[in-house]
Design a binder for these strands. Sequence first.
RNA 1: GGCGGUAUCGUCUAGGGGACUAGGACACGGCCCUCUCAAGGCUGGAACACGGGUUCGAAUCCCGUUACCGCUACCA
Length: 485
Amino acid sequence: MAATTPRLRFAPSPTGYLHVGGARTALFNWLYARKYGGKMLLRIEDTDKARSTDESARAIFDGLTWLGLAWDEDVVHQGANLERHRADALRLLDSGAAYRCFCTQEELASRRAEAEASSETFRYDRRCDWLTSAEIAQRVEDGRPFTVRFRVPDGATAWNDLVHETITFPNKDIEDFIILRADGTPIYNLAVVSDDIAMAITLVMRGDDHISNTPKQILLYRALGAELPQFAHLPMIHGMDGKKLSKRHGATAVGDYQHLGILPGAMLNFLALLGWAPGNDIEVMSLPEMIELFDTKGLQKKAAIFDTKKLEWMNGQHLQLLPTDELVARVGPALVAAGLTTAADLASRPAWFLRLLELLKVRARTVDDIVVQAAPYFHEVVTYDADAVAKQWKDRAASAEILGGVRDALATVTTWDAPAMEESLRALAQRLGLGDKAGKIFQPLRVALTGQTASPGIFDVLELLGRERAIARVNSALSELRKAP
RNA sequence: GGCGGUAUCGUCUAGGGGACUAGGACACGGCCCUCUCAAGGCUGGAACACGGGUUCGAAUCCCGUUACCGCUACCA
């Protein structure tokens, strides 16, 4: 094989949002191109004017951009190449590889229904291919509309698929398919082949659902005298019920996950593992590592099920691995968007913010988790969680006594940091005879400070809150506890 | 219906004739750590769809069956 640089393309139709399945197809194309020094182009298949929208095309650009899957060269809009598609179809007509079909859609539909009624397989019977040249000339002269059909030759069509090995189709099972509509616009298979040739694509990597289009396209390449690209058909992604992933499975657009607080790197990593394995039990990878390890050998043949539980776990892993400055850049805006703080506030105390994130990220799986957990550190007053109160402030008098002790202990602390807090509170536990049961102090205190039963270590929470706010919270808790229940 | 594709724990997967008592990860349970929750460590249950071959030997190769998925438009 010639040592040409690989050229791949991701070719979605702009009829919805960027689906996770499409994102994975794009990812594998991109990884291959990056790994082997090739190019990945983006082509928007918008020849179906009825279903295509600019908004959908934008969603695709946005999705790919968010994921960080940059395409090379200018975006190709298939609709802009209609003239070439038509010219290619006419060329096939001239060379005799295709013929005019005067059958109307109604005729075709009724013949199809007839075949179905007698439970026979319908396949176009080539009746228009038997027309004499005089008959054809007459009909054309009469202005009768016609489609252009490709004449499928005898034999069989096979290719060596990068994921499935050899796939063969007997040509007798492929009907003479239409390549040009009566209105002169191209049908999918023709447009794809015409564009892939024009874009000099060397590897067509796409979903499994295109396997039965491939023999038709191969036939077209040959009839057009073009060199065949390689093909790789990726397995589908299904929902937890084993059915093709769709809206009813919940979030299927990559944008949904973006808004759920999933990191693009985690999304990519998770998607990569759906249908590909690098081997050696490797799972958590950065993008450069994925490029390094990518190999079509590890591509899976079997459809994979989209398991959001593992996506969340993966996101947690990436959250830990994310450099702190990047974490700040991701979480800061989310906190501002949630109305917890302002960009100026965060900018005024970067060290504090960093400390907070370091303590929260380990117990969060998504950016949204961090935002929720961060609330007590920004709000003026704590909101006591009912369950937390019921559990940790069960004995109100005892809790009040403990918190009173805490208040006094905190009042004498000179350096307001976690080690000093620990020293002071452990000493208090000793004085109260709770030596190895210091939790009896920490838990009620946690509720006073955060309103919750779960939080980072109590000494860190105290440090983060700062002297003034921490003491104020202990005092409010005390007055809350002293109120009649 | 026809054609094509696929088949290892619930899920993602390792496995390429003997290294398989089938490994890892998610999820689930237990233990450890521990002020809580996480994280982390250890640990338990959990799979080669079925039937025939080939072979000294099959999760691995072949054939059949079954199941599932895709395509079967003047959609993409």
